[in-house]
Design a protein around this nucleic acid. Structure first.
Lengths: 350, 350
DNA sequence: CGACTTTGCACAATCGATGTTGCACATGAA
DNA sequence: TTCATGTGCAACATCGATTGTGCAAAGTCG
């Protein structure tokens, strides 16, 4: 810091070291070797910079170099286990590369999403990841216009490589597991069937999961009726209402329940809590996405854990060596049996 | 965009509009009224800028104006309900002000924390919030040197205003609630007492909660013995081990359990799951921090929800009108009875 | 000792936007 | 016609760092 209270610049350091700004700049970066600055001068300059608490003005550097050292990621919401895990991994990898992560949430609003992309472009971010895009086409368009590298995560997009979770196989595996725990009954009435609840049928991830669900049931000889698939959205309240209506129709809980997300599961639980104890003995429940507490409810819950760390890792890989043409990398989720704790990549979250 | 594929600048727009860069700059901001640019020219320039997909280079603007339009927040981890809710609120308020939020996680590492502050200073952020600081003193020092406004959240710091959760009263209320649900027994053996588990005794928040816990017990005529307070850290594994050891010592579960965090609770559950059903009938459990699934376990759990939205709201208020001298604003948490769902400020999360 | 290379650094242009100053022209009053 | 005032805009300096270029002084070789 200068005595005036301003932050010190290379000009201030230059004056103190009795040399020029360009020399100071070189001495403080790795460029001094190629720019033939003497070791003595470098040491002197670095000492003075240290004393003055100097730090590079990244706006100036960024302006000159036409890059910022920032990397962006857009997620639907922060307040969600899946996406906040992504944030954690995204940040860790960014720091490893000496980059500064900027994470923005779109609240699943296409327009907000585009505004965020524009903003990130204004700040000259080096590249961006878009997770759970609402309007991937528009984003690719904007990025192409600004010549900005980008990767889609969790949902494939056009005009850029994508890393997605294998929703189809994840759902198929979960469905098979649930079926295998259900009492087999050839003459099963409606109530003895398995139901899919939650999500938006037109969303990519939900659609793929429904396909997996449908495939396994069809394979097992009992293709799902339309009413077995209740894609009522993500908010807990919706699934709470729907599960209540379903129980009403069936005269009790169905034999199997495939819940499409944690938020939907929250709603389902909101209804379950009103049922008499023992109501769940004949029901097998599975949930796409993992939560340690959900794993410990008093009826067993089979959960699918998406590997957000791997997703991000692969996304960085794709940014580093962009494949030619469209490319979609699928990452396998894993099945977490009831009452098991998963310890994440950062030790024990907390 | 120019035909060369570069991003358009005010120079490009100026050429196309047959005027000068300074005029373009003025026309695109609100400055044109005071700078006597004709309405006609403004319209022309804005049309051309639109056509060219022009957007301001924020690095250039920031360099000139010695500010960036960025605001920073440091949190311990993203992957946590409490802090990710803060992120969500922090971002919402930032956008309302036309600022771009940059959220970084320190992993509770003091050195990382300081590095992040330095980085944010390098990017000329307008101000920062520090949540759950590890070394608030060092941070204040850095900020003062760089003349950077800042506010501490969740943990008071020197040299800047702070907004914290009222851990003392929150813990006292939870403790009282637990006591009132325990069977009163004057000749209670060790097993009939209430235990505090989790957290780090030297952490500010944990220390305050322990004080509240201790105060209520003392008031009730049974001041806690040292062994009733087990501050074994945050990781689930630790509390799992400790609760197992405790049950061993007592020959069963204690009558009351005050769990200091969700991660500790996760560990406690990891042990509970091995106990025979019915073991919990005589035990009253409370947890500091809220989780919807934890609210639905098969034994009732009393939870304390910290109002992260209010905390952030107050933090912005303090940034806007900085009080003279040190200032600490306390925000009351609320008690969430078992089996109740709390819907956050953003509708129904997810 | 002179030509030639190497060393060590300073100078100046540059990135894109902002804001101050000044200049040309128009309008109106004297 | 002449001076004063106002209007509309261009020129230029500036923010702080990077980077291409130039130029002395020191070192090397015949």
């Amino acid at each position: 810091m200068t005595s005036q209270g301003r932050k010190a610049t290379i000009f201030d350091i230059a004056k103190l070291a009795d040399s020029s700004p360009s020399t100071v700049s070189a001495a403080l970066s790795d460029a001094w070797k190629t720019r033939r600055i003497s070791q003595k001068k470098v040491d002197l300059i670095r000492r003075i910079a240290e004393e003055q608490g100097y730090s590079t003005n990244m706006q100036a550097r960024g302006l000159r170099q036409a890059r910022s050292g920032l990397v962006g990621m857009i997620i639907p919401v922060h307040d969600n286990r899946y996406f906040s895990s992504m944030s954690q991994s995204f940040e860790a990898f960014a720091r490893d590369r000496g980059l500064v992560p900027v994470i923005a949430s779109s609240m699943r609003d296409g327009e907000e999403e585009r505004r965020i992309v524009q903003t990130l472009i204004s700040y000259a971010v080096d590249y961006i990841f878009i997770a759970g895009a609402t309007d991937p086409g528009a984003i690719s368009e904007l990025c192409r216009a600004a010549n900005l590298r980008h990767v889609f995560v969790d949902l494939p997009g056009p005009g850029a490589p994508s890393v997605i979770s294998d929703n189809y196989h994840g759902a198929a595996t979960l469905t098979r597991t649930l079926l295998s725990h259900m009492r087999p009954d050839p003459d099963a009435p409606a109530r003895d069937r398995i139901y899919f609840i939650g999500g938006v049928a037109t969303d990519y991830a939900t659609a793929r999961r429904i396909e997996g669900f449908r495939h396994v049931l069809t394979e097992a000889g009992c293709p799902p009726q339309p009413e077995q698939i209740i894609a009522c959205g993500y908010p807990p309240r919706r699934s709470m209402k729907e599960i209540a209506a379903l129980c009403d129709r069936l005269g009790g809980l169905p034999a199997g329940l495939f819940v499409n997300s944690l938020t939907s599961f929250e709603g389902v639980l909101g209804h379950f809590v009103h049922l008499p104890p023992g109501s769940f003995d004949e029901t097998v429940v599975g949930c796409y996405d993992y939560d340690p507490f959900a794993a410990y409810l008093h009826f067993p819950v089979h959960m699918v854990r998406q590997d957000s760390h791997r997703l991000i890792e692969e996304a960085y890989r794709l940014i580093d060596t962009p494949p030619a043409g469209p490319f979609v990398k699928e990452v396998e989720p894993s099945l977490i049996p009831p009452r098991t704790i998963y310890a994440g990549p950062f030790g024990e979250h907390g």
